[in-house]
Amino acid sequence: MKSHKRVNHNPIARRDFLKSCARALAGGSLLALFGLTIRKTKAKDASCFWQIDPTKCTFCGRCETNCVKLSSAVKSVHAVKVCGYCDLCGGYYRTNAKELNTAAENLLCPTGAIQRKFVEEPFFEYSISEDLCNGCGKCAKGCNAFGNGSLFLQIKQELCKNCNECQISKVCPAHAISRVPVSNVYHLIDTL
């Protein structure tokens, strides 16, 4: 038998070996992670857009102030097929309105974003001008309290920055904002 001489370990070689092990570990774990997660990526129902569920919304007004945009991406939407076309509209007039005219002190909308148009006796058409709407939800609250609930809040997808975590979804007291897939990107009252 040969005498067992202590072989002088070459530190670089050992380090290289450890490095290869670490590479295999890193590559392997990355592959494993990728494999585990890619099973769940179904492009069809990957929910990466934010939307308000109008049946849960309580019109608290936080959408107006908590959106990362200066003017909130949340806007009031009017489901005309649900609207009663009332003269005394709960979403248009304040509850204490003295006269039913367009004087500012009678109107609910703080920015004058709701337009009222006479259709025929006794019906009036209401529409929202989106540029003026700030998403405060006062009209939706009034309409839900006194009318058919045809005014409601929705996140307008062309305005939404689509943040990874929607700021208003986390301050929404009713947990009404959730991720939705592109196939179901609006929750409209008249189609619910």
């Binding site: 259709v119 025929e120 058919n148």
Partner: peptide, 27 residues
């Protein structure tokens, strides 16, 4: 909620069309 019935229009009023933009983020 349906406190007020759907109005019966006699003047031939048609409901306005509404557009909702579907995002094209995927591309």
């Amino acid at each position: 909620m349906n406190r007020f019935p759907k109005p019966d229009f006699e003047s031939g009023y048609v409901y306005p069309q509404q557009q909702f933009v579907i995002p094209n983020e995927v591309l």
